[in-house]
Amino acid sequence: MDTRAYIESGIIESYILGVASPEEIAELELLCTQYPEIKAAVDAFALVIEQQAMAGAITPPPAVKENLMQQLAGEFAVKQPAAIFTLPTTNANDNISIQPAAGYWKFAAAAAVILLVASAILNFYLYSNYQNTNTKYEALLTEKNSLQASNGAYQTRLNLLQQSMDIVQNPAYTLVALNGLPGKENNHATVYWNSTSHDVYFLSTKMDKVPQDKQYQLWAIVNGKPVDAGLIGDCTDGLCKLKSIEGASAFAITLEPKGGSINPTTSAMFVLGSVNKQS
């Protein structure tokens, strides 16, 4: 819209002087909210009229104020006798007076809000610290448990090795070294045999990897005949106890189908070693 024409139409003056019609008032107040320049023109003319009235001020009789103060005496707010502080004023155009009670409460409210915020921040800080510590504690606990478990495993293994050492060092046991046969020269194994208690222990020194469906089987040669001395399972940790054998002259290992055989498959013999009687 043409705000300039509107401003210059005289409607603003009608409005300020109170002679505009209700429709004109409604229209102007609406336009004031939409066009800052119209609002500014309204304010400007209001100020002109105000200044004109101020300049032409006529002091009324003093009785008017006295009467007024008497008439309205019961309607004034009761003043708090508490500390009243007014900001000292330097510039007459720009002075501020602060209501004492409101000021105090504002200060108290501001202090309370600051304390609340500070407390909230501290709480948050402490809580996150607590969470952190808790997480670390949980991690340590897990680590400790896993260390304990592996410690247990090591202990078991150590015990096993200790037992193996006892057997190896025991003079009652005869060491039988099994060496690789032609074509299987890379293979070596050791058998510890107690000729008195007949206990047989096997130590896998170096054997070829076993196919999935096969298994090594130890044979003892007793009186020239092979006797089953037991299937060799997973025997990586120390010595493995196999079947007791009496009167063995030699030991041999063959590769047999899983579960073992009654008679050895001599074509699949890997290592062989005879017992050296050293008594």
Binding site: E50, A53, G56, A57, I58, T59, P60, K65, L68, M69
Partner: peptide, 14 residues
Amino acid sequence: FGYLYDNYSGALFN
């Protein structure tokens, strides 16, 4: 209110 009166009574009396 006293301030209001002192400040504006003359202009309003006008």
